[in-house]
């Protein structure tokens, strides 16, 4: 399956979706001009991945900032992963947040409340 690699910019996150290497990650900042267009390839990739997923799916969110428009799209991604989990696959979300960023930590808690999928909060320093 095709690998997606998008370099991060000042307003868009870095994205790696590599099924072969078991590497699924969104990191950095997210405030794209057109959120739907930006995240469309990610959602399409997840649809395709869901047809033949790996034994275990670990999706890493390591965002330092996202705007409210992005928050809806992040929920879309999480709901795709929730579907995968509902179908009986092994799925884990890892939500990384800077240890001094309570708002980012709370955002993770809120998503964990909304979606029914194993969710792990990971604090990092720096």
């Amino acid at each position: 399956m095709e690998t997606i690699k998008i370099q991060g910019t000042e307003d868009t996150p870095r994205i790696i979706l590599d099924a072969e290497k078991d590497l699924l990650e969104i990191s950095g900042r997210s405030l794209p001009e057109d959120v739907s267009a930006f995240y469309e390839p990610v959602l399409n990739w997840l649809n395709e991945y869901a047809e033949n997923p790996n034994d275990k799916t670990v999706f890493n969110f390591k965002l330092t900032y996202f705007n409210t428009a992005s928050s809806k799209l992040l929920l879309d991604i999480l709901m795709k992963l929730e579907e995968l989990h509902e179908k009986g696959h092994d799925v884990l979300i890892r939500w990384h947040y800077p240890e001094d960023d309570e708002d980012m930590e709370e955002a993770g808690e809120e998503y964990a409340d909304i979606v029914d999928v194993p969710f792990e909060q990971v604090a990092y320093s720096g």
Binding site: T68, A69, S71, K72, L75, M79, I114
Partner: peptide
Amino acid sequence: QMKEGRLSDKGGAGLG
């Protein structure tokens, strides 16, 4: 609002 607005760009009025 996030859940309700997630299907449309301008939905979730007042999220900001």
